[in-house]
Nucleic acid binder design. Structure first.
Lengths: 258, 258
DNA sequence: CGACACTTTGACACGGCTCAACTAGTGTGG
DNA sequence: CCACACTAGTTGAGCCGTGTCAAAGTGTCG
């Protein structure tokens, strides 16, 4: 056994082994060579899992790292001056959080675990340094941030112009996509968040959410008990999500981006 | 005259001379040394000015550069499958556009001049290369994208939870800020966009915009004729923008980010 | 001057919010 | 082990803010 082997062994319990992580192609997709990923490995830190309602960071905290969700789920939210909570996003395994803090070096929102959740911590300064050395990594970072911008704008469009029904359809399809990308079922999944949190995110009252779910069930588009959801008519949901209301005759569908 | 001087002179007509541009601290704020800016200079290309309604790029175009607005104003927008236009942003001098295209190497939205507008073109691949060499530039890029993410999320919040009045107040204050940052008046400015475009951006019908402006005028919060606007009670607008409706007693105010 | 796009105003309809009451889980302490 | 509280979800009634439609007014540019 060489000394390199020993050192590798010693460190491996501390680091997250991106090399073996099935999510690496989600959180930092493609384009990194084996050896580049190994370099990344060295700066990634694991943290002990968060329990439900634990915070990964809070609004106003100093920013020093971005995080990749390994398992579980997070929500990010801000609190308005009135104490009212606004959910700004849900984050599933393979997705990054904290990108919005780079600008000010302070987290502009809080991140809270919706269930038992483990994350990888990527210390930002070291990530930056590494990105300077590995062009592919720099590019990935920029791409991911670009994607975030794009999907926020899609969402913005949805909030501005879509009815409650359409918003729910869009969200369900987005979740479906994101589950599928991890190799899970696109039609049966368990929502990690409460109805009221979904509603909050979509800008809808919890009562409206409840009525929507019933309407969707009555239409045969899904069956749901509690957080367990089964999409039974994905096509109909795409219909709803894909086109603005006054446009029911048109063809074509949009992807939710994420 | 040294040969360096000659060369400088020769090139200067082709390049945009970031060094002398009063906007450089806006479009790529601080942290770049004189010599770094000079390197940036070398990759920046000027283009001849766009006339009103000219497109800088169109949805679906191949992406090869991001752009900094030098003068004038742009709007970005997407067209839904029904042919309906959705404005996704307004872009004033010192602001960047095209960041949302990095992910897919295609522009997900169109960019159109609202008035005679000149821009600097920053070829993205060369910018990436340069960013690898100049850590400060890489950091700036990431910061700017982070800021974009943050402000999109703020906007999202606004669309989800704010009334029409509040949205208009937020937008007016945002514009006021952005004009002020360029050294223009924060209280008197000319809107580069039509009312209906403002409304489109805010997710409001043009008729609603019209009624809002009248209401704001009746309240003495502003005076406006055509696109010429004068904010006469900024405090009241902050009141509106800064806190959700049910919260009129609370103190504190939020910044619109941009 | 005429054409055309933008803005304003009014009347009306309706989606989604609010308020309120009830139900179903879920955990807690006596 | 049950009573109680507490939270999340459901359902109904009524209201209000905005969208929609229609039509008239106002620039503005060729």
């Amino acid at each position: 056994m060489t000394s390199a082997d020993v050192s590798d062994f010693r460190v491996s319990s501390l680091r997250s082994a991106c090399t073996n992580c099935s999510l690496v192609q989600l959180c930092l997709p493609v384009s990194l060579s084996q050896s580049d990923v190994a370099l990344l490995d060295d700066i990634v830190q694991r943290r002990r899992p968060l329990q439900r309602n634990d915070h990964l960071y809070r609004e106003g905290d100093d920013f020093h790292a971005i995080y990749a969700v390994r398992s579980g789920a997070l929500k990010t939210y801000t609190v308005s001056s009135g104490g009212e909570e606004q959910v700004t996003g849900f984050h599933l395994p393979g997705e990054l959080v904290g990108l919005d803090a780079i600008n000010t070096w302070r987290h502009p929102c809080s991140a809270e675990a919706l269930e038992t959740t483990s994350v990888c911590e990527l210390p930002f300064e070291r990530l930056e340094d590494l990105a300077s050395e590995i062009p592919g990594l720099q590019r990935q970072l920029l791409r991911l941030m670009s994607r975030e911008i794009f999907s926020d704008q899609e969402m913005l469009f949805a909030m501005a112009r879509r009815t409650a029904e359409e918003r729910l359809a869009i969200l369900l399809l987005s979740l479906s996509d994101r589950f599928a990308r991890r190799g899970l079922s696109a039609t049966r999944f368990r929502l990690p968040m409460a109805r009221s949190e979904l509603g909050n995110y979509l800008g809808l009252a919890p009562e409206t959410m409840s009525r929507l779910f019933r309407r969707f069930r009555d239409q045969g588009w899904l069956s749901a008990e509690g957080r367990e959801v089964r999409l039974t008519d994905v096509e109909a949901l795409h219909e709803l999500a894909g086109r603005p209301p006054e446009d029911a005759a048109a063809v074509g569908q949009r992807d939710t981006g994420y």
